[in-house]
Structures are given as C-alpha cells and as structure tokens.
Lab assay of single mutants.
Amino acid sequence: QVALSRTQVCGILREELFQGDAFHQSDTHIFIIMGASGDLAKKKIYPTIWWLFRDGLLPENTFIVGYARSRLTVADIRKQSEPFFKATPEEKLKLEDFFARNSYVAGQYDDAASYQRLNSHMNALHLGSQANRLFYLALPPTVYEAVTKNIHESCMSQIGWNRIIVEKPFGRDLQSSDRLSNHISSLFREDQIYRIDHYLGKEMVQNLMVLRFANRIFGPIWNRDNIACVILTFKEPFGTEGRGGYFDEFGIIRDVMQNHLLQMLCLVAMEKPASTNSDDVRDEKVKVLKCISEVQANNVVLGQYVGNPDGEGEATKGYLDDPTVPRGSTTATFAAVVLYVENERWDGVPFILRCGKALNERKAEVRLQFHDVAGDIFHQQCKRNELVIRVQPNEAVYTKMMTKKPGMFFNPEESELDLTYGNRYKNVKLPDAYERLILDVFCGSQMHFVRSDELREAWRIFTPLLHQIELEKPKPIPYIYGSRGPTEADELMKRVGFQYEGTYKWVNPHKL
C-alpha cells in the first residue's frame, strides 16, 4: 500500500502544474464570482478556492472578487462561507491571508454602469489591468444573457486571457439551449467557454479513460460480442427537503440524466481518441451522441416518491408533501431510460440510465454486464461477469466473477477481482471535483468540460421526450421513500436483457 498525506498529494500536483506551459504561476489572475451571495458560491466555490489557495495550487498573485446585487462586505462573505471551509486552528494565518486577497463589488446584473465599476475595481488591483480574468457564473440561467453581454462589453482583460465558467442547466430543451449557446458564442470563442459538469471532475469518471485505453485486457472485450448491457446509475437517499420548488422546474431527467449520466455513457462508449488533447476527446464523445436516436417512450419509466409510513423524519414525507412543490405536480423524481448506440461496436446493446431521489442508498456507478459463458459445464450455477466502476461513495473498480467454492467439488461461487483505489492508495485525500475543474480552467484544459456541439446532441436525444411529458403530463409511478424505485423499472431492465441475480454482496474494501 502507498500512504500519501494531503501535503504529498498537493506537492505532486504542484510539480505537475508548474512543469506545464499552460499554468502561468507568476502571472496575476483575477477570479470573479458572479452571484457571490448565492448558495453555490457559499457552499462550493469559495470553499474550493480556499482549498486550492491553502494547498498552494493557485497562481501566487490571485485575487478573488465577488459580485452580486446584495450590498455585502468581505466580512459578510466570510461569515456565510467559512463554515464550509473546514479550516483547522493551525490554518488561521493562512485564512487571514486568503481573505486579504478577497474583495466585493455590489451591482445589478443588467446595468452597464455596475460592470464599469467592477472593471475599475479590477484595474485598481495590483497589475489588475493586465491580469488573466476568470469569470464564474454562479447564477440562474435567466440572467446569463445580460451578464455575459455586460462582461464582454465592460470587463474583459485587454492583455491577459479571459475565460468564463457556465453552470448547468444549459437551457431547458434543445431550442433554449441553442439560443443560449448562440448568444454566448457570439461574445466569446469556444476556447474561452467552460460549461461545467462537476461529474466530469470526479476521480473515477476520469479513471474510465485510463482503464479503457491503457489496459490491453479490456480492449478486445469492450464491444457487443461480449457486453450484454451497460447500466449507469445515480441514486440519492434523500428527497427534495424543502427545495422542491427549484427541482420541480427541471425534474430528474434535466437535473441528472441528460448531463451526468449521458457524459458517463460517452466515456464508456467512445472510441479511442487520437490523443488526450481536449478536442480529440470531445470529438469522440460527440460521435457517440450522434449514434444515439431520440428516446422512445416505451423505453422510459418515470416515478415519484411517496412517504414511507414506517419511516422516520423526512422519510415519512412524499414529494408532494414538500411545501415548495406545486400542488398535484407530476414532475418525476425517478427515471429509467434505455438508449442504444447504433454503431458497429455497440449495435443492440442497451445502455440503461437510472437516477432518482429518496432511494435506498447513495450511489453513482457504471456497471457493464457481460454475456453468459458459452457451453456451460457447471449446471447453470454460473452468474454473469460484471465490471463495476463505483464513482461514489467509496470509489472502487471491481470485476464480479466466478471462482471455485472451497471444498471437494467443482462448485462455482461469485467473488470479485478488486482493482480499488483504496487498497493501493491508503487514506489518500484526493482533490474534489470542483478543485480539479477550476484548476483545469486556470490551465486552459477543456477536456472535462462540455463543448457546444456535445451539448446540442445531448438535448436532441431528450427534448422530444421532455416535450411529450410536458404536454401529456403522465402521472409518475409512486414508489416508497427509501425503496429501490418503481418495480416497473426493474421490469424494463429485465425486458431489454439485464439479469439481476441478487445473490452477490459487494464487500467494501475500504472497511476491511
């Protein structure tokens, strides 16, 4: 086992960053958080920038500027975001240094004079007029057009580079997404736009490419001749908990499936790229999406959770019991969808996408189930092999396979070949997804960000279904809070070829 401390991990990262040409360590950078008073800024962006600063992973002359409508001070920003920093008493001095680099400007999102004030403020910072500028839009999409237009007109660096990070949702359907994309691309070049999907920053999602293309053993079996089906799962054990009003506007397909799960599907299904260059990788992902037809209604199961009468606390409440959810809402909190990649490698292999709230566990994984062994000599005792990439929690890679049961006879039983990170790298604290992705933006690497043509294809696949749901308002199937979801989803999976045995229990190697 390799035991690495946080300091050692960050030392390795620093070495990698400083050796590259793309990370300008000594240049002045300004990180501007648009929507600095909001939840995302408070819980994710400010803490992430602090962790990067604490670990010495930001360029040395980096300033952080918050911008929002609320009249706040840096002290206010500190008060609301610091509880999420997880700072230790030993880091007190470092924390003071961090907040000394912070400033805040209040202004409207659609007022040109406010942006001119913001620009004057940035120019007044040390070497601010020639600094590289990175704008993070932690804002609702309704203000994107006004904000990007004003940034472009008043706040661009004339000497350094300018980059803009856009948070999902990128529209509600193909038409609104196209409108937003066309607007942003009329102001910024594609190499300046970073559409963030934080799932692409997760260690195991990034590991998929290495697993596939750096190991000879997987190449020959990664196709329709050997793989019976692919299941991509995202499960949350909690409901909307008072935030249903926002969720109800989008629903589970827009929230998770059309982005996170579809991105994971691309990494499983794509061909080997010409290189690890950002556009070479994204070219292959677009090719996969172009091979997927629009979702067919007979390959869809929609569910909505109801309270568990035997549960406790939140578990007793259904989705419609959330006071922020519109009365009688038919918005799905669970969806199972089957897609097919219609190309030579994957023809006929079902890709089953499942996601839901208020389920029995927290889990995100990719599961490849292989065909049955031909010419069975073990009297149907063999179960199908599976390769599982567990994204969260407890990152893991393992192969479910058959071995001989101890004893006199040739009785096979299920076991696993474990390729888990935790076994080799004991207690290594890896940077989280937002840390990686923000560092990628500083480096100018777009590999783990969504390109406009990729986004367009993703919406093309799901828009007809979303429009049909909005028009017909089908009643989702009720499922109990804390269950596996509607049984109809299991029946759909069985119908397209997935075999669920229920006889195997994964042993978490992190707890051995």
Rank of each mutant, 00 (worst) to 15 (best):
K400Q: 04
C291E: 12
L471W: 12
P326W: 06
G482C: 05
V373C: 09
Q258H: 02
Q296Y: 13
T324Y: 08
S452M: 04
P478L: 07
Q446E: 00
K317C: 12
Q304N: 03
I480S: 12
F334V: 02
T333F: 02
N259I: 04
A374E: 14
G407Q: 08
E414Y: 09
L265M: 11
R327L: 13
G328D: 15
A458F: 03
T503C: 12
A297H: 14
K505V: 14
T316C: 13
N423A: 13
A458M: 05
G318H: 07
E312N: 14
T330S: 15
L417F: 01
Y319T: 02
E312K: 13
D347C: 08
H371E: 08
L492W: 10
Y479R: 04
T503G: 11
R451D: 03
P323L: 14
L320Y: 07
P273Y: 02
Q392D: 00
A458E: 11
R460M: 06
P431S: 09
K429T: 15
N299R: 10
E271L: 06
K363T: 06
K404D: 04
K473F: 10
I469R: 04
E342L: 13
E294F: 11
P393S: 09
P393N: 06
L265V: 09
V306F: 13
T316Y: 11
A458D: 01
I292P: 02
L437F: 03
L339H: 08
V391C: 03
E312H: 14
E294N: 12
Y425M: 05
W506L: 05
E361F: 02
R327I: 15
R367C: 01
T399D: 00
F449K: 02
A269S: 11
L492I: 15
P478Q: 13
K426H: 08
I477E: 14
S415V: 11
F442E: 03
V281T: 08
E344Q: 11
P350S: 00
F442H: 08
Q446W: 02
Y421E: 00
T316S: 13
V300Q: 11
K400S: 00
S445V: 09
E472T: 13
Q468I: 10
C355W: 02
R345Y: 08
Q258R: 02
K287L: 07
E386N: 04
V286I: 05
P478D: 11
P326F: 06
N427I: 07
H260N: 04
L265T: 07
R384V: 05
L437P: 03
Q381H: 10
C291V: 13
E491S: 13
E454C: 01
I292F: 07
G318Q: 05
G485K: 01
L289K: 01
L439T: 13
I377R: 07
Y340N: 14
V441Q: 00
H379I: 07
P476F: 01
F334I: 00
W506M: 05
V349L: 02
P273F: 00
T463L: 02
D440E: 08
A315V: 15
N308L: 08
R327E: 15
K405G: 07
V397G: 01
V349R: 01
L417W: 00
A332E: 14
N299W: 08
C443Y: 14
S445G: 14
D453V: 01
E386F: 01
P350F: 03
P350Y: 00
H260C: 01
L262M: 12
D440F: 02
D347A: 11
V301N: 06
N423Q: 12
K494R: 09
K272F: 06
F334N: 03
P474H: 14
G318F: 00
V300K: 09
M408C: 05
V281W: 01
L289T: 09
V295L: 14
Y425C: 07
G444E: 07
V349C: 05
E271I: 02
E435S: 10
R390G: 05
S415N: 05
P326R: 06
N360M: 01
K272P: 09
R362L: 09
W346L: 00
L289R: 00
A433I: 02
F351I: 08
L267A: 06
D372G: 11
V300I: 11
G303W: 05
T487N: 10
D376L: 07
L439A: 11
E386A: 06
I438T: 07
N385M: 01
S445H: 11
G356T: 00
E457K: 06
V373W: 06
V397K: 00
L387S: 04
T324R: 08
Q381P: 13
R367I: 04
R384P: 09
L455C: 06
D321N: 10
E386D: 00
V301E: 09
L417G: 04
Y504N: 05
Q392G: 13
T276F: 03
D376Y: 06
N427H: 07
P478S: 13
K290W: 05
V366S: 00
D347I: 07
G497F: 06
L387M: 05
F351Q: 00
Q392L: 01
I292G: 05
E457P: 01
H467N: 13
M402R: 00
M257G: 08
Q381V: 11
G497A: 10
K429Q: 12
Y481C: 10
M493Q: 15
K426Q: 11
